[in-house]
Simulated assay, not measured.
Amino acid sequence: MSQYTQQPQFPQAPTPAAQARNGLGTAALILGIIGALSGLIPFFFWLAGILGIIALVMGLAGRGRAKRGGATNKGVALAGAILGLISLIMSVVGAVILFKAVDDAVDDINKATSSSSATKESGDGSAKSDGKNKGKKGKGGAAGEDAETLAAGDSAVYEDKLTVTASAPEPYTPGEYAIGHTKGNKAYKVTVVIDNAGTKKFDAALVTAEARAGAEGVKAEQIFDEKVGELFTGTLAPGKKATAVYAFDTPADAENLVVEISPDFSHDASQWDLKL
Protein backbone atom coordinates (compact mmCIF):
# COMPACT_ATOMS: atom_id res chain seq x y z
CA MET A 1 0.00 0.00 0.00
CA SER A 2 1.30 3.43 -0.90
CA GLN A 3 2.70 5.47 1.93
CA TYR A 4 0.88 8.59 0.70
CA THR A 5 -2.79 8.77 -0.02
CA GLN A 6 -3.67 11.01 -3.02
CA GLN A 7 -6.21 13.69 -2.11
CA PRO A 8 -9.07 14.15 -4.55
CA GLN A 9 -8.98 17.35 -6.69
CA PHE A 10 -12.12 19.56 -6.71
CA PRO A 11 -12.67 22.20 -9.40
CA GLN A 12 -12.46 25.77 -8.06
CA ALA A 13 -15.21 28.29 -8.78
CA PRO A 14 -14.12 31.11 -11.12
CA THR A 15 -13.33 34.45 -9.50
CA PRO A 16 -16.26 36.81 -10.16
CA ALA A 17 -15.35 39.64 -12.53
CA ALA A 18 -15.45 43.18 -11.15
CA GLN A 19 -18.63 45.01 -12.08
CA ALA A 20 -18.12 47.74 -14.69
CA ARG A 21 -18.55 51.25 -13.31
CA ASN A 22 -20.06 53.12 -16.26
CA GLY A 23 -21.92 55.78 -14.30
CA LEU A 24 -19.51 58.66 -14.99
CA GLY A 25 -19.55 58.21 -18.76
CA THR A 26 -23.32 57.85 -18.94
CA ALA A 27 -23.93 60.89 -16.75
CA ALA A 28 -21.45 62.93 -18.83
CA LEU A 29 -23.30 62.06 -22.03
CA ILE A 30 -26.71 63.02 -20.60
CA LEU A 31 -25.48 66.29 -19.15
CA GLY A 32 -23.61 67.10 -22.35
CA ILE A 33 -26.75 66.64 -24.45
CA ILE A 34 -28.84 68.81 -22.13
CA GLY A 35 -26.11 71.46 -22.04
CA ALA A 36 -25.78 71.57 -25.83
CA LEU A 37 -29.56 71.92 -26.25
CA SER A 38 -29.62 74.71 -23.65
CA GLY A 39 -26.85 76.50 -25.53
CA LEU A 40 -29.14 76.85 -28.55
CA ILE A 41 -31.14 79.44 -26.57
CA PRO A 42 -28.93 82.45 -25.67
CA PHE A 43 -30.98 83.16 -22.53
CA PHE A 44 -29.91 79.80 -21.07
CA PHE A 45 -26.18 80.38 -21.63
CA TRP A 46 -25.59 80.06 -17.88
CA LEU A 47 -27.20 76.60 -17.77
CA ALA A 48 -25.20 75.44 -20.78
CA GLY A 49 -22.00 76.64 -19.10
CA ILE A 50 -22.66 74.84 -15.81
CA LEU A 51 -23.70 71.58 -17.46
CA GLY A 52 -20.84 71.83 -19.93
CA ILE A 53 -18.21 72.03 -17.19
CA ILE A 54 -19.72 69.10 -15.29
CA ALA A 55 -20.07 66.97 -18.43
CA LEU A 56 -16.49 67.71 -19.50
CA VAL A 57 -15.03 66.76 -16.09
CA MET A 58 -17.17 63.63 -15.72
CA GLY A 59 -16.49 62.57 -19.32
CA LEU A 60 -12.72 62.81 -18.88
CA ALA A 61 -12.92 60.98 -15.57
CA GLY A 62 -15.08 58.25 -17.11
CA ARG A 63 -12.67 57.86 -20.03
CA GLY A 64 -9.76 57.48 -17.62
CA ARG A 65 -11.68 54.85 -15.66
CA ALA A 66 -12.37 52.96 -18.90
CA LYS A 67 -8.67 53.00 -19.77
CA ARG A 68 -7.87 51.43 -16.39
CA GLY A 69 -10.45 48.70 -17.03
CA GLY A 70 -12.92 49.93 -14.47
CA ALA A 71 -15.56 50.79 -17.08
CA THR A 72 -16.61 49.56 -20.51
CA ASN A 73 -18.15 52.70 -22.03
CA LYS A 74 -15.06 54.57 -23.15
CA GLY A 75 -16.83 55.90 -26.25
CA VAL A 76 -19.81 57.15 -24.28
CA ALA A 77 -17.56 58.99 -21.85
CA LEU A 78 -15.61 60.56 -24.71
CA ALA A 79 -18.85 61.70 -26.37
CA GLY A 80 -19.99 63.25 -23.09
CA ALA A 81 -16.70 65.15 -22.75
CA ILE A 82 -16.96 66.46 -26.32
CA LEU A 83 -20.56 67.57 -25.80
CA GLY A 84 -19.49 69.28 -22.57
CA LEU A 85 -16.85 71.24 -24.47
CA ILE A 86 -19.41 72.18 -27.14
CA SER A 87 -21.79 73.34 -24.41
CA LEU A 88 -19.10 75.61 -22.99
CA ILE A 89 -18.45 77.17 -26.39
CA MET A 90 -22.17 77.69 -27.00
CA SER A 91 -22.50 79.21 -23.55
CA VAL A 92 -19.89 81.85 -24.36
CA VAL A 93 -21.50 82.61 -27.73
CA GLY A 94 -24.97 82.83 -26.16
CA ALA A 95 -23.73 85.20 -23.46
CA VAL A 96 -22.17 87.50 -26.07
CA ILE A 97 -25.37 87.53 -28.17
CA LEU A 98 -27.62 88.16 -25.16
CA PHE A 99 -25.50 90.95 -23.68
CA LYS A 100 -25.13 92.65 -27.06
CA ALA A 101 -28.91 92.53 -27.61
CA VAL A 102 -29.49 94.07 -24.18
CA ASP A 103 -26.92 96.82 -24.85
CA ASP A 104 -28.51 97.61 -28.22
CA ALA A 105 -31.97 97.79 -26.65
CA VAL A 106 -30.74 100.13 -23.92
CA ASP A 107 -29.03 102.35 -26.51
CA ASP A 108 -32.23 102.53 -28.58
CA ILE A 109 -34.27 103.47 -25.52
CA ASN A 110 -31.76 106.15 -24.55
CA LYS A 111 -31.74 107.58 -28.08
CA ALA A 112 -35.54 107.64 -28.22
CA THR A 113 -35.72 109.33 -24.81
CA SER A 114 -33.10 111.91 -25.79
CA SER A 115 -34.86 112.68 -29.07
CA SER A 116 -38.21 113.07 -27.31
CA SER A 117 -36.76 115.43 -24.70
CA ALA A 118 -34.97 117.52 -27.32
CA THR A 119 -38.16 117.80 -29.39
CA LYS A 120 -40.27 118.99 -26.47
CA GLU A 121 -37.68 121.59 -25.50
CA SER A 122 -37.22 122.97 -29.00
CA GLY A 123 -40.90 122.81 -30.01
CA ASP A 124 -40.15 120.87 -33.19
CA GLY A 125 -43.43 118.98 -32.85
CA SER A 126 -45.50 121.86 -34.26
CA ALA A 127 -46.72 121.99 -37.84
CA LYS A 128 -45.29 124.42 -40.31
CA SER A 129 -45.61 125.34 -43.95
CA ASP A 130 -42.99 123.94 -46.29
CA GLY A 131 -43.31 125.52 -49.73
CA LYS A 132 -46.27 124.10 -51.64
CA ASN A 133 -46.71 121.23 -49.23
CA LYS A 134 -47.70 121.65 -45.61
CA GLY A 135 -45.17 120.06 -43.32
CA LYS A 136 -44.84 118.76 -39.81
CA LYS A 137 -41.47 118.37 -38.19
CA GLY A 138 -40.29 116.60 -35.10
CA LYS A 139 -40.08 113.28 -33.28
CA GLY A 140 -41.79 112.06 -30.14
CA GLY A 141 -44.81 113.52 -28.37
CA ALA A 142 -48.43 112.52 -28.65
CA ALA A 143 -49.95 111.85 -32.03
CA GLY A 144 -51.40 115.02 -33.49
CA GLU A 145 -50.20 117.20 -30.59
CA ASP A 146 -50.03 120.81 -31.88
CA ALA A 147 -50.15 119.29 -35.36
CA GLU A 148 -51.95 120.60 -38.41
CA THR A 149 -54.35 118.37 -40.29
CA LEU A 150 -53.09 117.97 -43.83
CA ALA A 151 -55.02 117.89 -47.09
CA ALA A 152 -54.76 115.53 -50.04
CA GLY A 153 -51.31 115.73 -51.63
CA ASP A 154 -49.74 117.49 -48.63
CA SER A 155 -46.59 116.09 -47.06
CA ALA A 156 -45.58 115.60 -43.45
CA VAL A 157 -41.88 116.52 -43.25
CA TYR A 158 -39.92 115.46 -40.18
CA GLU A 159 -36.70 116.88 -38.79
CA ASP A 160 -34.70 113.89 -40.05
CA LYS A 161 -36.01 114.68 -43.57
CA LEU A 162 -38.40 111.76 -43.66
CA THR A 163 -41.39 112.79 -45.78
CA VAL A 164 -44.82 111.13 -45.84
CA THR A 165 -47.37 112.06 -48.52
CA ALA A 166 -50.98 110.89 -48.87
CA SER A 167 -52.94 111.20 -52.11
CA ALA A 168 -56.58 112.13 -52.65
CA PRO A 169 -58.96 109.20 -52.13
CA GLU A 170 -60.18 107.34 -55.20
CA PRO A 171 -63.28 105.12 -55.38
CA TYR A 172 -62.35 101.46 -55.22
CA THR A 173 -64.25 98.27 -55.95
CA PRO A 174 -63.09 95.47 -53.60
CA GLY A 175 -62.50 92.00 -54.99
CA GLU A 176 -64.87 89.12 -54.51
CA TYR A 177 -62.91 87.74 -51.57
CA ALA A 178 -61.94 91.06 -50.02
CA ILE A 179 -61.55 91.31 -46.25
CA GLY A 180 -62.76 94.39 -44.36
CA HIS A 181 -65.50 95.50 -46.75
CA THR A 182 -69.15 95.59 -45.64
CA LYS A 183 -71.92 95.30 -48.21
CA GLY A 184 -73.64 98.65 -48.72
CA ASN A 185 -70.58 100.68 -47.76
CA LYS A 186 -68.28 102.47 -50.13
CA ALA A 187 -64.56 101.85 -50.54
CA TYR A 188 -61.77 104.32 -51.28
CA LYS A 189 -58.08 103.81 -51.87
CA VAL A 190 -55.32 106.17 -50.75
CA THR A 191 -51.74 106.04 -52.00
CA VAL A 192 -49.06 106.75 -49.39
CA VAL A 193 -45.48 107.59 -50.40
CA ILE A 194 -42.58 107.65 -47.96
CA ASP A 195 -39.41 109.49 -49.05
CA ASN A 196 -36.31 108.97 -46.91
CA ALA A 197 -34.29 112.08 -47.74
CA GLY A 198 -32.23 111.74 -44.56
CA THR A 199 -28.89 110.09 -43.90
CA LYS A 200 -30.04 107.07 -41.90
CA LYS A 201 -31.97 103.95 -42.82
CA PHE A 202 -35.69 103.87 -42.02
CA ASP A 203 -37.54 100.71 -40.97
CA ALA A 204 -40.63 100.89 -43.17
CA ALA A 205 -42.10 97.75 -41.59
CA LEU A 206 -43.19 99.83 -38.58
CA VAL A 207 -45.49 102.10 -40.62
CA THR A 208 -49.16 101.83 -39.61
CA ALA A 209 -52.30 103.40 -41.08
CA GLU A 210 -55.72 104.04 -39.55
CA ALA A 211 -58.76 105.95 -40.78
CA ARG A 212 -62.06 107.43 -39.59
CA ALA A 213 -64.94 108.42 -41.83
CA GLY A 214 -67.80 110.92 -41.70
CA ALA A 215 -68.75 113.62 -39.25
CA GLU A 216 -69.06 111.07 -36.45
CA GLY A 217 -65.54 109.76 -36.99
CA VAL A 218 -66.60 106.14 -37.46
CA LYS A 219 -63.64 103.81 -37.78
CA ALA A 220 -63.01 102.93 -41.41
CA GLU A 221 -61.85 99.33 -41.67
CA GLN A 222 -58.85 98.66 -43.88
CA ILE A 223 -59.61 96.47 -46.89
CA PHE A 224 -57.39 93.61 -47.98
CA ASP A 225 -57.66 91.82 -51.30
CA GLU A 226 -55.44 90.83 -54.21
CA LYS A 227 -54.85 94.47 -55.24
CA VAL A 228 -54.69 96.53 -52.05
CA GLY A 229 -53.60 95.99 -48.48
CA GLU A 230 -49.93 95.22 -49.05
CA LEU A 231 -48.08 96.99 -46.23
CA PHE A 232 -44.70 98.69 -46.22
CA THR A 233 -41.90 96.18 -45.60
CA GLY A 234 -38.14 96.13 -45.24
CA THR A 235 -35.69 98.95 -44.71
CA LEU A 236 -35.72 102.19 -46.69
CA ALA A 237 -32.19 103.38 -47.48
CA PRO A 238 -31.32 107.10 -47.59
CA GLY A 239 -32.50 108.73 -50.80
CA LYS A 240 -35.06 105.99 -51.53
CA LYS A 241 -38.86 106.02 -51.72
CA ALA A 242 -41.52 103.42 -50.98
CA THR A 243 -45.20 103.36 -51.96
CA ALA A 244 -48.16 101.49 -50.53
CA VAL A 245 -51.85 101.61 -51.47
CA TYR A 246 -54.38 101.44 -48.64
CA ALA A 247 -58.13 100.97 -49.11
CA PHE A 248 -60.72 101.85 -46.48
CA ASP A 249 -64.37 100.90 -46.00
CA THR A 250 -66.64 103.92 -45.31
CA PRO A 251 -70.34 104.48 -44.70
CA ALA A 252 -72.19 105.35 -47.89
CA ASP A 253 -73.08 108.86 -46.66
CA ALA A 254 -69.58 109.79 -45.42
CA GLU A 255 -68.22 113.00 -46.93
CA ASN A 256 -64.70 112.90 -45.60
CA LEU A 257 -62.02 110.40 -44.58
CA VAL A 258 -59.38 111.19 -41.95
CA VAL A 259 -56.29 109.06 -42.54
CA GLU A 260 -53.59 108.82 -39.88
CA ILE A 261 -50.13 107.54 -40.79
CA SER A 262 -47.66 106.67 -38.05
CA PRO A 263 -44.10 106.11 -39.39
CA ASP A 264 -42.77 104.43 -36.23
CA PHE A 265 -42.43 104.86 -32.48
CA SER A 266 -40.01 107.81 -32.73
CA HIS A 267 -42.05 109.91 -35.21
CA ASP A 268 -45.35 111.66 -34.54
CA ALA A 269 -48.38 110.36 -36.39
CA SER A 270 -49.69 112.67 -39.13
CA GLN A 271 -53.30 113.13 -40.25
CA TRP A 272 -54.88 113.94 -43.61
CA ASP A 273 -58.50 115.14 -43.88
CA LEU A 274 -59.55 113.88 -47.29
CA LYS A 275 -62.74 114.91 -49.05
CA LEU A 276 -64.74 112.03 -50.55
Score class of each variant (00 low, 15 high):
162 L>Y: 07
125 G>P: 00
26 T>C: 08
174 P>R: 00
258 V>C: 01
157 V>H: 04
227 K>G: 03
34 I>M: 12
192 V>N: 12
73 N>R: 14
272 W>N: 05
115 S>G: 08
82 I>K: 13
39 G>R: 02
135 G>C: 08
57 V>H: 00
163 T>F: 00
68 R>V: 05
270 S>N: 14
256 N>R: 00
16 P>H: 11
153 G>T: 09
164 V>H: 01
56 L>C: 03
198 G>S: 10
124 D>P: 01
12 Q>T: 12
33 I>T: 09
228 V>N: 12
167 S>P: 04
237 A>S: 15
184 G>K: 02
41 I>A: 10
146 D>E: 08
41 I>V: 09
241 K>M: 15
201 K>F: 04
99 F>R: 02
38 S>C: 11
55 A>G: 00
96 V>W: 04
37 L>S: 07
34 I>R: 02
222 Q>A: 10
28 A>E: 09
91 S>M: 06
230 E>P: 01
183 K>M: 00
209 A>G: 08
162 L>A: 09
226 E>P: 01
91 S>A: 13
265 F>G: 14
274 L>I: 03
30 I>K: 08
218 V>C: 04
239 G>M: 13
45 F>T: 00
146 D>F: 08
159 E>G: 10
195 D>F: 07
211 A>F: 04
83 L>Y: 14
146 D>Y: 08
89 I>V: 15
151 A>Q: 02
159 E>A: 09
213 A>I: 00
86 I>R: 07
142 A>N: 10
192 V>C: 11
90 M>A: 04
117 S>C: 05
23 G>S: 14
132 K>V: 03
115 S>R: 14
80 G>S: 15
129 S>C: 01
261 I>C: 05
26 T>E: 11
15 T>Q: 15
106 V>C: 02
132 K>A: 07
143 A>D: 15
36 A>S: 13
186 K>F: 01
13 A>W: 10
69 G>S: 06
121 E>Q: 12
29 L>V: 10
268 D>M: 11
161 K>T: 05
127 A>F: 04
50 I>L: 05
81 A>I: 15
202 F>L: 05
62 G>M: 06
137 K>F: 08
119 T>F: 09
69 G>N: 06
47 L>A: 06
31 L>D: 00
12 Q>P: 14
24 L>K: 09
134 K>T: 03
258 V>Y: 00
34 I>F: 15
195 D>N: 15
99 F>Y: 06
271 Q>D: 06
55 A>W: 00
3 Q>N: 12
8 P>L: 14
19 Q>N: 08
